[in-house]
């Protein structure tokens, strides 16, 4: 058991060393992009054109095919960032700090998408663009935490110090995630309760949630793709005076 742990640990450390990471990630980047586009286009085409209309909302419910995945991603990217922060603070792994920084703008984009599409969905169904209920307000706070992380990062010159500060802030900010998740259960909100829960079957017919599943996978792939692009930039930016970087780009 300990042996397995040590081998995996060594493997992770090796794969995370900047030159090696740069080499192996170049092979998967384009695949991630292609897969993301396939999943997203099939999922959205299916969701927008083939899936049946809703008995109550009609066609406008189709906004959920982008709203739900981006809300999921906005939260899970934050959890991913907090995990990177933990690794960065405890093990001082350089790559995890870069990962945290690279993920932040993507997570913020998804949270923004969730808020904007939710607002646009709210107007025709609820009758208002915005209401200060617990779900909407806590998601807005998440957007501000993302902005604070990015702001904090750019305000500290020393990159190692910046990594550490942002890592700790990401752990502090993690407390907002359970509030967002449970807000619809704890308080009376205008936002509806979750359609998908771990404990019961989804309250949505299969021909509607199958395309949604594809969209969620597509959004995760787009995140992985954008993350790899950002991370590769971050790696060569920080190591640009090193020989291995020069060898790749200066021939």
């Amino acid at each position: 058991m300990i042996r397995v742990w040590n081998v995996t640990k060594r493997w992770f450390i090796e794969m995370g060393s900047p030159p090696l990471f740069y080499r192996w990630s170049s092979k998967i980047t384009s695949w991630l992009g292609i897969l993301a586009i396939i999943f997203l286009s099939v999922g959205l085409f299916w969701g927008l054109l083939i899936a049946p209309t809703d008995y109550k909302q009609g066609d406008v419910y189709r906004i959920l095919y982008v709203h739900v995945p981006s809300a999921i991603l906005g939260q899970s990217i934050f959890m991913f960032m907090a995990a990177c922060g933990l690794i960065n603070v405890v093990w001082r792994a350089k790559i995890s700090g870069m990962m945290l920084k690279s993920a932040a703008p993507i997570g913020m984009s998804f949270t923004l998408i969730a808020l904007v599409t939710g607002s646009v969905w709210g107007k025709p169904t609820w009758g208002t663009w915005w209401v200060w209920d617990a779900r909407l307000t806590s998601t807005l706070i998440l957007l501000f935490i993302y902005a604070a992380l990015i702001g904090l990062y750019s305000s500290i010159e020393d990159k190692t110090k910046a990594d550490r500060a942002v890592s700790i802030l990401s752990i502090v900010g993690l407390a907002i995630i359970p509030v967002i998740k449970k807000s619809v259960d704890w308080w009376q909100t205008l936002h509806q309760p979750s359609t998908f829960t771990l404990t019961s079957s989804p309250s949505m017919s299969p021909e509607m949630y199958q395309p949604l599943l594809l969209c969620v996978i597509g959004f995760y792939l787009i995140f992985a793709f954008a993350l790899t692009l950002n991370l590769r930039n971050e790696v060569i930016d920080r190591e640009r005076s090193k020989n291995w970087v020069k060898q790749i780009f200066v021939n």
Binding site: L44, D59, R62, V120
Partner: peptide, 12 residues
Amino acid sequence: NGLFVWFCMAFV
């Protein structure tokens, strides 16, 4: 409601 739906898609 097309305007609402297509605006969302374009925004994404």
